[in-house]
Design a protein around this nucleic acid. Structure first.
Lengths: 194, 194
DNA sequence: CTCGTGTCTTAACTTAAGTCAATGCACGTA
DNA sequence: TACGTGCATTGACTTAAGTTAAGACACGAG
C-alpha cells in the first residue's frame, strides 16, 4: 500500500530514499470502515487525508435541509479543507467514507513543524495544491459551459468507474440535477448512442 | 499602490519590514491598458500576476467556436495557471484586461529561486493558494447547488460591483447561461423584489 | 451626418429539466 | 416468509432556460 505513496512522492520531489523513509515514518496510515465520518459540517477539521484506497463523499446540508454532494474523492486524491479566511474555520462539509478505505492521515497541528523539518515537503505540498487548484478550476470552467447532459457525458469520460461506484441520487446531486433527470439522461444516451 | 501589497503580505507572513523591502525590490509592478492580453489560449504562460487595480477576464474558445468566460479577477486576486500535469503546459485560457490595470508581475522562471532565497515567501504562496483553492471549491459547490437565477442573486450579493463593471453577455457566459436568460432573470427580479 | 458594429432587450416558440406521484425492485429484519 | 425501507425508474404536467429572430440604442469611423 505504501508504494502508492512512494510513487507519488517521487513524482513531485527529488527526495532521496532515506529522506522519504524518514518522512514516511512520521506519516500515519489508517483504515476506515464504510460509513465512517472523517469530520462533520460545523466541526473544526484537525486532520487531512490522502486516499490510498476507497471513496469519500463530500456533502453539505443547507438551511432548507437539502443535501448537496460537492465531490467524490478516490485513489490518489487529497482531502483537506482550507478555510483560513473563515473566522471560526468550521467545515461547511461532511466527509464520509462510502467504501472501506485506507488513507494517509496528516495532523494539521504539526503541519508547520513538518515543513520546517523537511522544507521539500512544503514544496511538495505547494505543488500538489497548485495542481489541485488547476484541476478544480478546469472542472469548474467545464461545468459552467455545459448542460446537465454534457456534464454527465464528461463524467462518463473522465471518471467512468465512479458512475457505478456511487448511488445514483448522490451522483445526480453532484451533477447539479435531480435523480429523475439523471435517469432520463441515461435513458436518452442509451437509446441514441453517439 | 504598493501599500496594498504590504498590507497583503503582512496578513499572510511574519516578515520584518526589511525582509518585505528586500522582496518588494525584486518584484515588478506594471501598468496595463484596457484590452491588453496577458497570455493567450495555447501559449505557455511565463508569468503570474497579482491585481492591485483593474479587472481581468479569463475565457476560452472551444472546438465549436463558442466562447466561455470562466472568471473575472479584480483587486487583490492572483492570476496563475497551474498545469504541471499537462504534457505541454499550454494555457487553456486567454486572460485579457477589460479595464486599465496595475499588477504585480512574477516571473515563473525565477520562482523557485525566490523561494529558496526567502522560504517565508513559499509559505505565503502556499497559504495564498490554499485559501484560493478553498474559495474555488466553495464557489463550485454553491454553483452546483443553484439554479441560474440563484446564481445571479449570489453574485449580486458577493460581488455587487462586478455586475456593472463587465458586459452583460460576458457575465451571462460566466453564469453558464445565455444573455437572453440573464436579461429575463434581471427583469424578473426587478419586477418582484424580495 | 450617416452608416455599421456591437450590445442589450423583447417576443414567439421549442426543449429539457423540475415537480409530484406511482410503481417496481433489492435488501435487511421481524 | 412477510414486511418495511430506501432507491431507481417512469409518467404526466409545469416551468424556466435555450433558440431564433427582430428591434432599439450607443458609439466610432468615414
Amino acid at each position: 500500500m505504501k508504494d502508492i505513496l512512494y510513487k507519488y512522492m517521487s513524482r513531485w520531489t527529488s527526495l532521496t530514499e532515506e529522506e522519504q523513509q524518514v518522512i514516511m515514518e512520521q506519516l500515519h496510515i489508517e483504515q476506515f470502515k464504510k460509513g465512517t465520518v472523517l469530520f462533520r459540517q460545523g466541526e473544526v477539521p484537525t486532520r487531512c487525508y490522502f486516499i490510498l484506497k476507497g471513496c469519500v463523499r463530500q456533502y453539505s446540508i443547507d438551511e432548507e435541509g437539502r443535501e448537496t454532494t460537492s465531490n467524490f474523492y478516490t485513489e490518489e486524491q487529497a482531502i483537506a479543507v482550507f478555510n483560513h479566511h473563515k473566522p471560526e474555520r468550521l467545515s461547511d462539509y461532511t466527509f464520509i467514507c462510502i467504501e472501506d478505505a485506507v488513507m494517509v492521515v496528516g495532523d494539521l497541528e504539526t503541519e508547520q513543524d513538518m515543513y520546517n523539518k523537511h522544507p521539500q515537503l512544503e514544496t511538495m505540498t505547494r505543488m500538489m495544491i497548485e495542481e489541485n487548484l488547476g484541476q478544480v478550476q478546469e472542472e469548474f470552467a467545464a461545468f459552467i459551459a455545459s448542460s446537465p447532459e454534457e456534464r454527465f457525458k464528461t463524467l462518463q469520460h473522465r471518471r467512468p468507474l465512479l458512475i457505478d461506484r456511487v448511488p445514483q441520487h448522490q451522483l445526480a446531486s453532484y451533477l447539479g440535477i435531480t435523480p429523475e433527470s439523471l435517469s432520463r439522461i441515461k435513458k436518452r444516451i442509451h437509446q441514441a448512442p453517439r
